[in-house]
Design a protein around this nucleic acid. Structure first.
Lengths: 204, 204
DNA sequence: GTCGAGGGGTTACCGCCGGTAACACTGGCG
DNA sequence: CGCCAGTGTTACCGGCGGTAACCCCTCGAC
């Protein structure tokens, strides 16, 4: 391997996959030593690659976050009536957290306290999702970027779906379609009210 | 003091107040040693009183949770139109988290990971709030206790307000009344849609 | 071939945490 | 006086995140 990036990058990728395995097996509260053991190396190598625990968590979260956000964006931006798009997005979210609950727990739980890396804040999954949604909502309602209303709505909607999904997940995870229906109704009601109010005037 | 509870209870109260001071000063991630130092004693006494860190956190959270839940219940159950009651409840919630952000952070953050006491799960603030709201919603919609819809709604509503409030708080905390208005609109729209759908049939 | 230089890897450590065992002090009681 | 119970302390354990110091293997220069 005499590539521009000899094997640093591949090594890093392998380490992240090892970390991923161990997180999926033992949950998000995992020690650096156990990750290193899973990767067949020792701690200092991990630290040379990622700086500190926050750095590793951030790198690990970024991969999953990118993937999940892309899926959600596709679901929301696809074809269909607005209501169908909302429903599809909710379904995508719930299906993902049901299929990979450990990943989901890691993403939601990691940014709180654990993953405050030394160099710069880690924009967590929920934060990035909210930011994306805020842009979409502002566009949908004809509000300027960064409008207070759009920001609040995005945070509120994300929080609603996250909280409901969280409860549903640890309650057993049955009846996914029923949950999709309920959440879509809730969001749709809120959305309709918002459109009504927004078209009535008062942007920011 | 020759009361039925000699001074065990008073001592415990004093320890909790010391813990409260130190949490309000240093945030929710506080060591047992520093709490003990603030109380003027050493660690083993703390452990004799509360078992483990989770026990102390649970006792500390319970006081604040009881108080906050009572205030919210009063706000929701008071006089006025349904919309006014929702608005008043949201305002109460936001005012509280604005006035005591450290307490709020402690309540929301503590139950996640840190405060899993050895003897029994700690029903966190958000969980208790959701349970209360679920009962109220089920009654309001004429659904049986524990109905899936009421549970989902309660979790979703709590999550929405919590997420929006959280963002607003760390974004500077300006314009509380505007946030109250936005959240009330959102919740009201969702609620109206739900009533419509619920009266149309389909309970659980 | 021999010798340095360098870098990937390890061991062994630090300080802090939650949690606990074992000991010291002090007062009542026969 | 000896004894006991309770209360508080010191001193420790294992494990964590994080790091310093060393070790050894390779590679190029002479």
């Amino acid at each position: 391997m005499t590539l521009p990036l000899p094997d640093r990058s591949a090594r890093r990728e392998a380490l992240l996959e090892a970390a991923d395995r161990i997180v999926q097996r033992d949950g998000p509260a995992v020690s650096m030593a156990s990750i290193a053991a899973e990767a067949g190396i020792t701690k200092p190598i991990l630290y040379r690659h990622f700086g500190d625990k926050g750095g590793l968590y951030a790198a690990l979260a970024e991969r999953h976050t990118d993937r999940l956000l892309a899926a959600l964006q596709d679901a929301l931006a696809g074809a269909g009536t607005p209501r169908a798009r909302v429903e599809r997005t909710v379904r995508t979210y719930l299906a993902t957290i049901e299929e990979e609950p450990q990943v989901y727990r890691f993403l939601v739980h990691s940014a709180e306290g654990e993953a405050a890396s030394a160099h710069g804040q880690v924009r967590s999954f929920l934060r990035r999702l909210s930011e994306l949604l805020a842009v979409g909502i502002a566009a949908e309602l004809g509000l300027p970027a960064g409008a207070f209303r759009a920001e609040i709505w995005a945070r509120g909607i994300v929080g609603m779906v996250q909280a409901a999904g969280d409860w549903w997940l640890l309650e057993g995870g049955a009846d996914r379609e029923e949950l999709v229906g309920e959440l879509t109704d809730l969001l749709w009601g809120a959305y309709a009210e918002g459109v009504r109010r927004s078209s009535r005037g008062g942007g920011d």
